[in-house]
């Protein structure tokens, strides 16, 4: 076991864990941040997506000792930014979620997409979002919500 200090959602948190522990289990088991979900454990579904210095990473295959001084954001911290809040409101307005289990990851991937590409095309959305599985089939509404959020970001309603 080793002690790490990592920045999560704007706070420095102390973690005592095996260095190679995947961030997913650090968040869920040690830090009481269960919003990142376990879906496949193998980088295949995106349910565990977090931001590390803004980049969307799969927490289930990102070890604790790879974080270093990077800034980690989880779904619990998404609403701290304007972009995050706009996305959440778009998600609510389009009634995206069904069971909701995949939605933490969907929102985190969408946030990275819009941060890099404020006016994404459908192809951009396909590219950025195809690593996130939704078994409830919310895809059509995820797409609409991303477009809605993109419009809101640019000040259009």
């Amino acid at each position: 076991m080793s002690i790490f200090h990592i920045s999560i959602n704007g706070k420095v948190r102390r973690v005592d864990a095996e260095p190679e522990t995947p961030m997913l289990w650090v968040l869920r088991d040690e830090l009481d941040l269960p919003g990142a979900r376990f879906g496949c454990g193998a980088g295949l579904c995106g349910a565990c997506t977090i931001h590390v210095d803004g980049a969307p990473l799969r927490a289930c295959i990102t070890p604790l000792n790879a974080i270093g001084a990077s800034k980690v954001t989880t779904i619990e911290g998404l609403g701290d930014t304007r972009l995050g809040r706009i996305l959440q409101e778009a998600w609510l307005a389009e009634d995206v979620a069904q069971c909701g289990y995949c939605q933490s990851g969907q929102l985190m991937s969408a946030a990275s997409l819009l941060a890099a590409t404020p006016a994404p095309s459908d192809e951009d959305i396909d590219q950025a979002m195809s690593g996130n599985i939704c078994r409830c089939g919310a895809y059509p509404r995820i797409r609409k919500a991303i477009h809605r959020a993109a419009n809101a970001l640019r000040g259009k309603s």
Binding site: P34, R37, I75, E76, G79, Q88, W91, L92, D95, G100
Partner: peptide, 27 residues
């Protein structure tokens, strides 16, 4: 009508079975 339980599904606060963690729980 918009889903009434939507908010907890966009901010990560919904707690599924897998999130239950009574004190002293082991995996």
């Amino acid at each position: 009508t918009t889903r009434l339980d939507g908010r907890a599904r966009v901010d990560g606060s919904v707690r599924y079975g897998i999130d239950a963690a009574p004190p002293g729980v082991r995996i």
